[in-house]
Amino acid sequence: MASSTSYVLDRGSNGDARLLRLPPGARAPRIVPGMDAARGLTVDGAGVLYAIAVDPRYLTLSIVTLYPDGHRRQLPLAGTAVDYATSLAIGPMAIDGHGALYCADGQQVLKIAPNGHVATAPAPLPTRIVGSDAKITGLAVSRAGTLYVTVSSMSSTGEDQAAMLPAGGRPSTIATGLSEAGGIAVDAHGAVYIADSGNDRVVEALPPH
């Protein structure tokens, strides 16, 4: 989603998706064609949209770039950190102020270079934040490069939480007691917003400085 136009990835239970575009002032979204294989999306400050596309025919993953004028570019992902067979949980995406893309893949965060090379983000999440059954369900990145994640325990008894991973620093928890944690976002002033779906609310958290 962006400042003037909102984008929503609407995924069905069968894994297929449709990308909806809602311009400012519009009352109903329109479907962006050709994005039914998208798994995650993010938008940069210039309104350029990035999405991970899955092609089950050729077992490949690629990054799709959609420019505001409608021009589209697709670049295969490469690197040892990404594998179609183990990347079916790939989803939440974010982009930092330098154009580096991040994507959550199960219990890890991947960093995607402009050339499509994928590497594991430098600060892996410790098991006290992401347990063996947990899954990253939301991802955001600040201007300073700090990553923020929501983590679902994926169990009926465990609680969800949100954590931050400062660039070059130690990961820490910023909110606990969440239920069915969804998306997470960070604004220009460092305020963090968390979709606490199971508790029917949106939470604003203040990370430590």
Binding site: A188, V202, E204
Partner: peptide
């Protein structure tokens, strides 16, 4: 760490914030 605000919405599952807050 501090949770500042909590506003009720029915089952919110995705969110974003723009440059204007």
């Amino acid at each position: 760490n501090t949770v500042l605000e909590a506003v009720p919405y029915q089952s919110p599952f995705a969110l974003a914030v723009d440059s204007h807050g």
